[in-house]
């Protein structure tokens, strides 16, 4: 427990390059033939690049359906990428074939799921659930050692070792999420993918779980990929933030930079929608428009139908990511320097 905690080594642990995943949601072959329809394909993740340094928390934010959960599932291997690479400490683990060659790497990453009511097998005792990674990977010599370790893990996440004998339905949502975290920690992973771990919980419980995750990160030197749609939560936990829109990463930056000086119009729109004390009495700018259907994304910059700064070029060309101070942004308006200063509306 007395590991050097605050000294973060800035080595990229995970690098994702041009990651793509498409889902075929076409009607069955016979229907397509009879109704004369073509295939329909969803580009859930469409060329995402980012890297996460060891000991850091990288957050992905975005509206529902923007592909952030798909990125999480691609990284832990629940889906196979359609294209692009996932590199874990210099080892390529993108395809399932390459991933299968490195079971040790699979063991070093774990995932915490969104719904604590679905992520624990209702027929298993908590002790067995938490012990599963230990037993499967035969990390400990005998059952007594496993039981002892399970007790330690449960204490570590703020539960009692005696809870091992109970079933998941005997716990509340927050407690279940703690069990989920204990299971994720059982295999002593270094990299945790957290897919909206708090969005199914009450606000007070959310804070407890987030604090627990931060404590564990400090004690165990964990690296997090944190998926959320809650910007307040993201601000609380992250070192870096990536903003996703329709399968693309539109902006990423250090947390402080992103929240102080957001560049992409979409990021600005999201930040504008957060209620805060400064804006008491002033009407908020609502998030305008709907997310377009990922089945038929708009050409050019996929954000242009909702963007106040969109011009002809935005409707035609997909913007490339350009490096800016503290991060990168994919926006023609930024590139062409026609971005209004941030909080201009607030001053007016």
């Amino acid at each position: 427990m007395s590991k050097p905690a605050e000294t973060k080594v800035t080595v990229p642990m995970l690098t994702v390059t041009d990651l793509k995943r498409v889902f075929d949601v076409s009607a069955p072959w016979l229907n397509r033939l009879l109704e004369g329809k073509g295939r329909s394909i969803v580009r859930a993740v469409d060329g995402v690049n980012f890297s996460i340094n060891q000991g850091e928390t990288f957050s992905l934010v975005g509206e529902s359906g923007c592909g952030k959960s798909t990125v999480a599932r691609l990284i832990v291997g629940l889906y196979e990428p359609s294209d692009g690479s996932i590199n874990f400490e210099g080892v390529e683990i993108g395809s399932s074939v390459e991933r299968a060659k490195h079971p040790d790497i699979q063991g070093r990453m774990q995932m915490i799921f969104q719904d604590p009511y679905a992520s624990l097998n209702p027929r298993w005792r908590v002790g067995d659930i938490v012990a599963e990674p230990l037993r499967f990977r035969k990390l400990l010599p005998d059952n007594a050692a496993v039981d002892k370790r399970v007790g330690e893990l449960l204490s570590q996440v703020g539960l009692s070792p005696l809870d091992a004998r109970k079933f998941p339905h005997e716990f509340s949502g927050g407690q279940r999420q703690r069990i989920s975290i204990a299971r994720a920690l059982a295999g002593e992973p270094e990299f945790l993918v957290c897919d909206e771990p708090t969005s199914a919980l009450d606000v007070s419980v959310q804070a407890q779980i987030l604090n627990l995750m931060k404590d564990l990160q400090r004690k165990l030197g964990l690296t997090y990929l944190f998926i959320s749609h809650n910007l307040a939560v993201v601000y609380h936990v992250s070192d870096k933030v990536g903003v996703m829109y329709l399968g693309r990463l539109v902006e990423w930056a250090d947390t402080q930079t992103l929240f102080d000086r957001p560049l992409h119009p979409y990021t600005r729109m999201l930040l504008d929608a957060i209620p805060d004390l400064d804006m008491t009495g002033r009407s908020r700018t609502p998030v305008a428009g709907e997310v377009p259907s990922p089945l038929n994304p708009p050409p050019g910059c996929s954000f242009h139908p909702r963007c106040p700064l969109a011009n002809e070029r935005c409707r035609r060309d997909v913007p490339k990511a350009i490096a800016v101070e503290g991060g990168a942004v994919a926006c023609h308006a930024v590139e062409e320097n026609r971005l209004p200063p941030w909080k201009a509306q607030a001053a007016a």
Partner: peptide, 13 residues
């Protein structure tokens, strides 16, 4: 499709 099955897959079963 429930998450406990996915959790088992992530463990590597």
């Amino acid at each position: 499709s429930k998450e406990y099955v996915q959790a088992a897959r992530v463990i590597g079963l």
